[in-house]
Design a protein around this nucleic acid. Sequence first.
DNA 1: GACTTATGTCACCGATAGGTGATATAAGCA
DNA 2: TGCTTATATCACCTATCGGTGACATAAGTC
Lengths: 208, 208
Amino acid sequence: MAAKKQPPLRDRQITSRILISAVGSLLAKKGFKGLGVNAVAREAGVDKVLIYRYFDGLPGLIAAFAQQEDFWPSPVEMAGGDLARFSKLPLDKKLSLFAASFIQALKKRPLSRAIMAWEMIEPNELTEELERVREERIMAFFQMFFAKDHTGIDLQALVMLVGAALSYLVIRSDNIDIYGGLDLATDQGWDRITSVVNMIIQQMVTPE
Amino acid sequence: MAAKKQPPLRDRQITSRILISAVGSLLAKKGFKGLGVNAVAREAGVDKVLIYRYFDGLPGLIAAFAQQEDFWPSPVEMAGGDLARFSKLPLDKKLSLFAASFIQALKKRPLSRAIMAWEMIEPNELTEELERVREERIMAFFQMFFAKDHTGIDLQALVMLVGAALSYLVIRSDNIDIYGGLDLATDQGWDRITSVVNMIIQQMVTPE
DNA sequence: GACTTATGTCACCGATAGGTGATATAAGCA
DNA sequence: TGCTTATATCACCTATCGGTGACATAAGTC
């Protein structure tokens, strides 16, 4: 909640930033359910008409919000923090590290999870753009490090399947503790998940 | 849209059914976005107070709706249609058949997908009940057919991981065509997915 | 027939939604 | 200084939300 009874700032830049960050905090607090012009303006401690004036409405404001945040993990983050080291690893180690980094990256981004969930129910211009960026990023990463396999397996399908599973489970962990008997609320539960992922990787990329 | 100017039916059973089916059609038409007491009553052509009287509110009505619909695939459906035959299969065949059946079951249930997506963004009393039923069902199925493995692998984690991946991908296919380079809009794309799933199963449950 | 109960409609409540026009005032410029 | 413009607030609009109390009427019971 921002302060309210100071004299108004009369600084479009700052006010815009306040509005943008209000989107973030509101999103974190209430999710997309509570995301409306009135609520955002209230959260920012600013009149809602400014949303229309500065951003041409809520979609514009959200678009501005999305641009300044690092929603999707960067390639270096998905590679565990060190691209050079990552590129020298054998394929199975690469995949394991990628999976673990992916989980961590998602776990630390509640807003990204909220948006991923949002995309599933309300596809619109905004989520389309976010989706496009994400697809682009993940494909670039894949091309860079996993493209030239000749093992005969469909590495892309494998990676994306695991990515899909991990995405789903991390998103679900916001709402439920148990999924199919797996405990999504504890490290032990996640150890089971990473273990089975690593086992799959072992079995798949080092045949026999 | 139900008829409106007939004399009222004065039949609780029928009126209740009208309300319940109104939930379904409204959900199909507008998604959960437009799902409220007013909207449901309007769709049913009936006064909204009956929702409170007969179902003790919208959560109760939705719970009633959920019970009569086959949201979640039954064990027999997940077993490919024939439980006896299924139970005689070797473990890897069981798993493959389960995966394929699971995809088909989800693909033919747009309402289930919508609700699954809903659960991710708006956990509430309504979705909690639905979630509980689903967890129960899937655990019962797992216990029945996959519980007694002695292969040393975490079969439960494997099954749930694959289930999570498939759930995510089918839900996403409602909104996007391409996920991580996988074509979710064509049978060929899904063939890639089922192939890699089957390969994982082969590698995991029949070591060497 | 008279009475009770169940079924249903209607009118209304306060809260909140998205959206707009009028107004105050500070800042920039001549 | 005086004028214009940008910044921000305020008051208000209509629509809809979830929810409730009062009332009409048909059905069932004695």
